[in-house]
Simulated assay, not measured.
Amino acid sequence: MSAPTTEPRPEETMSRSFDDLVAEADAASVDGWDFSWLDGRASEERPSWRFSELLGRRLASVPSSLDLETGGGEVLDTAPVLPPLAAATESWPPNLARAAARLHPRGVVVVRTEEGAVLPFADDSFALVSSRHPVAVDWTDVARVIAPGGSYLAQHVGPASVFELVEAFLGPQPEAVRRARHPDDEADGARAAGLDIVCLRTERLRIEFHDVGAIVWFLRKVIWMVPGFTSAQYLDRLQELHRSLQEDGPFVAHSTRTLIEARKPAR
């Protein structure tokens, strides 16, 4: 999503009917990991560390890299320079095709993986392993493929991210669910796998949804927020949100993002 703006919502969006907004959002493609469909309809603050730029600088300084859960390759492709040996993994077929089309011309090997499966790479293969918003991290396997002295550099989704929206549909969530992906727990997992924590930072960032179509499209794309979401299933709740958006302004939520760098000790 784009950076926050203080400009008023487009008048044409505010005046459109509920049925029109929902139908448009239901028909729009959610392939890849591009959120530009939300431009002008939702906004999100960005973490201060500027992950894409940080990753680009690191990639220019290492001989080999692996980008995990690369999506459509959008973030990796922003790097001005890629290492001589660069690989990426993805498990969702539509994203895999997009990543291959985007990254193959830049010399990146794109490998299909299965969620929960061991990474199909030899031990000590990569000087840098990266990821932006991985679903889950198998720290033991990640540590295995990092070369001695190499690093894992990633931006993770933090605990209770966008839970204002989640709980608007699912109701209050248990504390154990809210704590999932806590940075302290992730750091403990990395240390248990033999990695040293170099950096651990978390920020809470404001999100605004300006129309109900933006909410529908977001929940269709980020499928783990409200599992099994369809507009038909939650029609009454969406109508309530539409009225609130029209009368009270944007729906405000907060994402959490964690920057984590962990290093494998040199032998």
Rank of each mutant, 00 (worst) to 15 (best):
A176D: 15
V22L: 04
V252K: 05
G40M: 08
A86Q: 13
A86V: 12
V108N: 04
K221M: 11
I146K: 02
S48F: 11
A253H: 01
Y152V: 09
I146P: 00
P4W: 02
I146L: 03
F18A: 04
L128N: 03
V22S: 02
A190W: 04
P63T: 09
P93Y: 08
L153W: 07
E175W: 08
T5W: 00
G249M: 00
R46E: 09
I260W: 04
R50T: 10
D77P: 04
D185V: 15
T78C: 05
V118F: 10
S29C: 10
A42V: 05
A262N: 09
K221H: 11
W217I: 07
L219M: 10
L59N: 00
D211Y: 00
H242A: 14
F169D: 00
W224V: 14
L238C: 11
L205A: 05
L96Y: 05
A88D: 06
H182A: 11
S244I: 05
A25D: 08
Y234Q: 15
H254P: 05
L245R: 01
I207P: 03
H242Q: 08
V30T: 15
L165H: 05
F126G: 01
K264V: 08
P159C: 01
V137W: 00
S17F: 05
S64P: 12
G228I: 11
A143N: 00
S61T: 13
R58P: 04
P227F: 12
T70W: 03
L21N: 03
T5V: 09
P8C: 02
S244A: 10
P174G: 02
F169T: 09
H156E: 09
V252F: 03
E247Y: 06
E175V: 14
V177W: 09
E114V: 15
E24S: 12
F163I: 00
P227C: 10
A160M: 02
L235P: 09
D19S: 13
A160E: 00
P105K: 07
W92P: 11
A25V: 04
V75Q: 07
F18H: 13
D26E: 15
I197Q: 10
D188T: 13
P134W: 04
W33D: 11
K264P: 07
I223Y: 13
G189M: 04
G150Y: 10
S43R: 01
A168R: 14
A28V: 06
R102A: 08
R237C: 06
S91T: 12
A160T: 02
L66V: 06
S52Q: 08
R46Y: 09
R257M: 09
H210W: 11
T89M: 02
G149N: 14
